[in-house]
Design a binder for these strands. Sequence first.
DNA 1: AACACCGCGTTTTTT
DNA 2: ACGCGGTGTT
Length: 716
Amino acid sequence: MDLSHLLDGLNDAQRQAITLPPGGALVLAGAGSGKTRVLVHRIAWLLEVEQVRPWSILAVTFTNKAAREMQQRIQHLLSRPTLGMWVGTFHGLAHRLLREHWQAAGLPQEFQILDSDDQFRLVRRVIRALDIDEDKWPPRQMQWWINGQKDEGLRPQHLDAGQDPYQKRLIQIYSEYQAACERGGLVDFAELLLRALELLRDNQAIREHLQDRFQHILVDEFQDTNAIQYAWLRLIAGKQNRLFVVGDDDQSIYGWRGARVENIQDCQRQYPDAELIRLEQNYRSTGNILNAANAVIAQNSGRLGKNLWTEGGEGEPIRIYEAYNGVDEARFVVERIQQYIEQGLARRECAILYRSNAQSRLFEEALMQMGMPYRVYGGLRFFERAEIKDGLAYLQLLSNRHNDASFERVVNLPTRGIGNRTLDAVRAHARDFNCSLWQASIELIRGGKMSPRAAGALRGLLDLIEEIAANSAELALHERAAQCIHSAGLVEHHKHSKDGKGQDRVENLEELVAAAKQFGLEHDPEQGDALFAFLSHAALEAGEGQADPHEDCVQLMTLHTAKGLEFPLVFMVGLEEGLFPHSLSIEEPGRLEEERRLCYVGMTRAMRRLFLCHAENRQLYGKETYPMPSRFLREIPRELTEEVRSRPRVSRPVFNDDFSFEQVGFQLGQRVRHAKFGEGVVLNAEGQGPRARVQVNFEGVGCKWLMADPAFLQGI
DNA sequence: AACACCGCGTTTTTT
DNA sequence: ACGCGGTGTT
């Protein structure tokens, strides 16, 4: 058999991973080492050489994008569709299992998926219904806490508050929230995973069926799995180890949302027979970039250990630029991009990476000034936009009148005279009679206790929904969507809005119809009701962030978002203590190491050129700060770097010119010691005589304004 | 029901 | 600084 198409152009480690006999394997895949390639070729190898049947393969990823990419690459390599194979995200696959086995999972057949926003609203509703003070028990935090419990596999009944009243409250809110979900047939994202786990755990027949079926389980980005996902994988894998997992402990950057890097080590312990293969040859970056990244990540403890190398050359030095401030940093970056573009680089090949979203602003302003097209990643995606969720809420009501979340969302949108008083009455009735808001509305209208006006308005909503339902029952999905957004008055509503975004919203609503049309074309009627499937799809896959991704744009995104991507030219900006590593992560060693991994991820995005920028002075939350350069900069060997000096040190901000310093007896940049705060650097000065004060940035303490009194502050 | 003001928080994100 | 969400005013 000719296997060249499966193995050509691969290195030894890659081949070794791909051709392992069926069984367990742990592939430590460094950044840019051809990880996806190995997964795809492994699957092809199993099919073509091991003669494995496609339906015995399960391939799991984290994002829809990764799942699609894998699917496409397999099909491309095999030149045929991947029939019967399960390739999808953890959530997508869990969803599929729950739909198939809804009864065994204890769910109504038509259970609906809550996205984070829906979940937030429901948590808030629950807290309000319990008459709990929202300020003391912020819905956001409660939502976060509940998800954290679910991610650890903990149900309310597993939790014991003991005598702790705080814990008691938390558990009460969790219980009530869960009860509300059960009543409404609602499943949040964490619940999808937990339910799917419990389904396998508690149902021997289903478990054994799946264990028999999936002889080969492949997992991407294994370092990002949480407790539930890992437990779920082990359950399906059964006693024999059939887990082929690919991951990189050095790229674990999602610990804060429950990911457990330890799963990698645990996997080794659980399955000692699993082969461990390291992919260390890098096909992306220059030697200098790799050496710098290696040096930074080497500062972390407890690594499995890996050193990236390349057959390519050293390349250019890593450029380090110290800006005056954020504006100067942005100016520098954009000017450099301009230069490289003049030399022939495409805009889409340039990326600006930052730690936090707020940092994008200055770069956007500089880019805008230059008239350079750019794209900011992150922010709301298509199905998360308010107007889209409004449209979807109407569709939800067509599908299920008793969806309270959707009812609440659109009950008075566009305004139709249903005020808070009316709504409160409906909510109270629903609570008292343990029924849906829809049902409560019907009963209240029938009961005749409402004002005629309120009853009329409410009646109007009910009639509207029933009318749309009746008129559109026979129509195709996208026609129903169109009917919905028009008859409900959403389009009209946005057309008349005067905040300038109305037109965008109308276009988005039209885009929703287009999305429904596309979905309808691909939907197999055998797979159930198209509307219902579309609604699940919308919750499970939030879609792209912005339209026309094909324009050639400079790419702006957070370091987290950049994971998995690569760019010929990368600017990492804001490398300052407090920003990156972020101040909230500096204290704890574990979190600091995660920041360092984030730095490693960022650096290894760069193919040819890498710029690292920091500013001496930065406006942060409206205050002026003088951050120290990031420790990560110091961890890079000097010989790999080159400082960019584009700046004569002349114009300093007026407020800390030499005159002020003469008055206070200290010099800018002078090292000083303070009895309480330790050592630091003088940054600024003001006043004179007894009112002379200096600003000092103390190591590990931060900036302080102090009396410039030699009794307390000594030069060293 | 629309608008103004106030006060707070403010890392990172996918499903 | 800035934006968002929530409350209070017209």
